[in-house]
Design a protein around this nucleic acid. Structure first.
Length: 286
DNA sequence: CTCCAGGAGTCAT
DNA sequence: ATGACTCATGGA
């Protein structure tokens, strides 16, 4: 059979918790002294030990998770650049989220997941995606416990709208069902989008029913590794208004403003800021 | 009760 | 191109 291997990486620029809890991934669970992380049909156990963060996974998934956690990128460089911008909120956010990395996740899984995310909150998003996997995914096992894969579009296309409503998708049910159908029929080829430059990629994504500017930015950033993306949601809008003292109202234009300003570092800075704004809100409330 | 959550589609200007 | 209205759902 297969063996479990460990990947070790200095935790200064790899905080397991911050990386998982900054809103880029919805499939992870607390496990022992760390977390189990799920992507497609794979699973890894991640935790911190001493000065290192450790990823345990099946030996044949080693390369997958090295890429998944973006381990070959120099985050010290990004962190230093963020601090070097001389913007207080950004510097504070970077210091608070120094260990955040942007995951390289499956493009199709990101597309479905962020359609679920629209006008929704993170705990609910996680719950809905969990039900989706439990109902339609394939059962597998890791470290003696079962889990379910993210379902294939083909499997999802077999279900009707009523099923998707029953797992809590509400009005997004039709978006999910239709996308699954189109992918299965070959009308949409998500992988082929990667050949496009970022602008054309987003145009293709926005053409999908249920995908607007913000969801397209998230899919581009988390699924297509396009760091010249700056998703603007309600939290980032707060950052823009309260901390950057901005006066643009249209979120798409706020995104443009940030990308023009931060270029290829946009996505990384955005994650720092999103994470920081949310943890601050939590800690000052109650 | 209202307000909000990693918004987007539709339709009237 | 821009602006209001609407779309389920559950937690605060």
């Amino acid at each position: 059979m297969d063996s479990i291997i460990k990947i070790e990486f200095p935790k200064e620029f790899f905080s397991v918790q911050d990386t998982l809890e900054c809103g880029q991934i919805f499939r992870f669970l607390p496990y022992k002294n760390g977390f189990k992380v799920f992507s497609l049909n794979k699973c890894a156990y991640c935790y911190e030990s001493g000065d290192n963060s450790i990823i345990e996974c099946n030996s044949f998934d080693k390369e997958y998770f090295i890429n998944f956690f973006d381990l070959s990128r120099d985050y010290n460089k990004i962190f230093s650049a963020a601090v070097g911008e001389n913007i207080k909120i950004l510097s504070d956010a970077a210091n608070a989220g120094k260990g955040i990395r942007i995951l390289n996740q499956d493009r199709t899984e990101m597309l479905f997941s962020f359609i679920v995310s629209q006008n929704n909150n993170i705990p609910r998003i996680k719950g809905i995606i969990e039900k989706l996997c439990y109902s339609l995914g394939e059962k597998s096992e890791f470290l003696g416990e079962e889990y379910f894969s993210f379902p294939t579009p083909k499997k999802m296309a077999e279900k009707d709208v009523e099923f998707y409503k029953s797992i809590g998708l509400g009005y997004r049910a039709e978006y999910i069902r239709r996308l699954a159908e189109y992918i299965t029929l070959g009308k949409i080829n998500v992988e082929s989008f990667n050949a496009l430059d970022t602008k054309e990629l987003k145009k293709s994504l926005v053409a999908i029913h249920g995908v607007g500017q913000k969801v397209a930015d998230c899919v581009a950033l988390f699924g297509f590794n396009r760091s010249d993306s700056f998703p603007v949601d309600t939290w980032i809008e707060k950052v823009y208004i309260e901390d950057f003292k901005g006066n643009i109202k249209d979120r798409a234009k706020i995104a443009e403003y940030f990308v023009q300003r931060f270029k290829q570092n946009s996505g990384f800075y955005q994650q720092y800021l999103f994470h920081y704004k949310r943890i601050k809100e939590k800690s000052t409330l109650k």
